[in-house]
Nucleic acid binder design. Structure first.
Lengths: 109, 109
DNA sequence: ACATTATATAAGTGTTTGCTTATAAGTTCA
DNA sequence: TGAACTTATAAGCAAACACTTATATAATGT
């Protein structure tokens, strides 16, 4: 990994909202509409963050009907470091469990 | 460490020139004028990068006569991760040894 | 005192970033 | 077919970023 690749990687992680997204993905895969419930951000903003994370190969996407399910890319060479880094961050206020409780968790048949 | 602190930290590292600076500091402490010999950058540019690194507490400075000697801050909680990260990067073309060979290495009495 | 050396800061500039609103594209289901 | 829903993209904008040149500040040595 050269200096510019590392720069792209660190810049992709180095945003508090993207870290929050990654923190959620540490627990389970999620789609954009779920993030809009979990994080105080508009749908296009989240979509653009996901594109950034995808370009840096930090996440992978899977189309499922009208949803796009996003997951952490466990095959990235720096995946273990990412996990360590995310584990240092506090749990977000809004939990995925609360989504389920409100019936807002997406279940792709 | 909260999300905004982590963001500041990652943004401070996330620049290829600053990574190069940090890589050099991994071997030994250096002053600005030595960096101008090692890296293709102007003195003010380096000075401004050092200020950024200092604000993120990644480095420490020590005034020695007309020089300011910069070192890695080994007391930073993420210092071990920084070292791991830097170790993944290739050695810079220009070495400190070559500075010595050219008599450009600063020796503070 | 004065020239030299090392560093920091200021002001200006082009680029990138992270958002916004508006809209397009694709899927599902009545 | 058409309405509802999910996602992606486009255009615009303010702020941050990484540099530049010019200059200020401070220490050293004659």
């Amino acid at each position: 990994m050269d200096y510019l690749q590392m720069e792209s990687y660190l810049k992709a992680i180095g945003d508090h909202n993207r870290m929050l997204i990654l923190k959620y993905l540490m627990t389970e895969s999620l789609c954009i509409c779920e993030f809009t419930e979990l994080i105080d951000m508009t749908q296009p903003a989240i979509s653009q963050h996901m594109r950034k994370l995808k370009q840096a190969e930090l996440v992978t996407e899977e189309k499922r009907g009208r949803w796009t399910i996003w997951s952490l890319n466990i095959r990235h060479p720096l995946y273990p470091m990412l996990i360590h880094l995310l584990s240092l961050l506090p749990e977000p206020e809004r939990t995925v469990a609360s989504l389920v409780a409100e019936g807002k968790k997406v279940v792709c048949e």
